[in-house]
Structures are given as C-alpha cells and as structure tokens.
Amino acid sequence: MNGEYSLDTTEGMAASGDPPTNNAVDDYDAEEALERQREEENKIKIKLKSFEGGVYECGLTAAKMSVMVANMLDALQETDLTKIATREPIPLQNDAVTNKALEKIVEWVDHHWDDPPIDPDFDDEKERRNEELSHWDKQFIDIADQGELFDIIAAANFMDIKGLVEVGAKHICNKIKGKSCTEVREMLKIHNDFTPEEEAAIHKENEWIYAKD
C-alpha cells in the first residue's frame, strides 16, 4: 500500500512538474520553426499581375500579407509550395491595381514581410492606431502624385493588406491635421455637396469648437 502510494505521488509530481516546461520549450520551438518556415517560404517567388498587365515578383510570405492573395493560394491546396512559383501570375482585377501601385505594394510587403503577423485574438488595435509611422513608412508613403497615392490605398484595400491601408490612412490624416474644411476639400479634391445653408447650419452647431481656435 505504502509503496504504491509513494509511486503515485512521484508520478503525480512528474506529471504536474514536467508538462509546463515541456510546453514552454515546445512553444519556443514552434515559434522558431514557424519563423524559419516563413523565411524559407519567402524565398519562393510568386508573380502578381496588375490590372494593366504588368507582372511583379514577390516573396511568398510577403505576398500572403494580402489576405486576398493568401486566400487564393489556400484555395489551390497546393502542398508543394515550390510549384506555386511556376504557376501563372495571379491576376488582380481592380482598376486601382495599376503597374505603379502594384510595384509600390510589392516594395512595401517585401520590406514588411517579417513583421509579426497581426493576432486577431490579442487586441492591440488601439495601440497600433496611436502608433506613429516608422521613418521607412513615412518615406515610402510620401508620394507627390495624389492619384497614385489613392491608387495604392485603394489597391491595398482591395488586396486586403491591413497594415498598408493603415499607413495610407495615417498619412492622409497627418496631412490634413490642423487644416480648415475648405483647405481639406481643396487638398483632397472633395466635392462640396452641401448647400450654403446646410453648411452654415453645421458651422453653427459646431460653433463652440471654432471658438476655441
């Protein structure tokens, strides 16, 4: 009886003591392995085809930052990933995906492919929202031609690349900061579809905020 009991406790101790450390090692290993896999996969190049017909090459991990492209690749159920490289280019059927826009998008995902993927379970949305753009992103998105800038944002939105849409949105918000309504309209070429009376009414309603200036 006694012997059996002591055997039980040692077993119990082993059971309660070991798994957590094992799990931690497993987690670490899994993370490492995933990172290595992402790195390997990014060496595989796939081709993306713009709306205008231009074909651009991009690492697989980088391309998967586009949820749309990732879904398309998943739908293929291709187990041998290297075969994806030999496939025909993926057509991106939206008129915002011009050659220039796609070139810039490929540049962005190639730079950001090793960012930690956004974890939907972990709510860091608010933090990311308030984060300043990195120096690289700032230079990347500072595009003189507004049509091209809007193309990139619309194309990134179409391809479902959250990070890039965010960069674009933050850039535009930074640009209009502190401007008046008229200046914003001029800058972003927005058509004023209010009648003068309607506009005056809104002005009056929000008068207290203008009074602060």
């Binding site: 309504c181 914003v184 209010f194 506009e199 203008y210």
Partner: peptide, 9 residues
C-alpha cells in the same frame, strides 16, 4: 478634427 471636418462633404 471630426467636429471640424463634419462639413467637408
């Protein structure tokens, strides 16, 4: 800024 830009469009 939201209050200010309400009357943009």
């Amino acid at each position: 800024d939201r209050f200010r830009y309400e009357c943009v469009s």
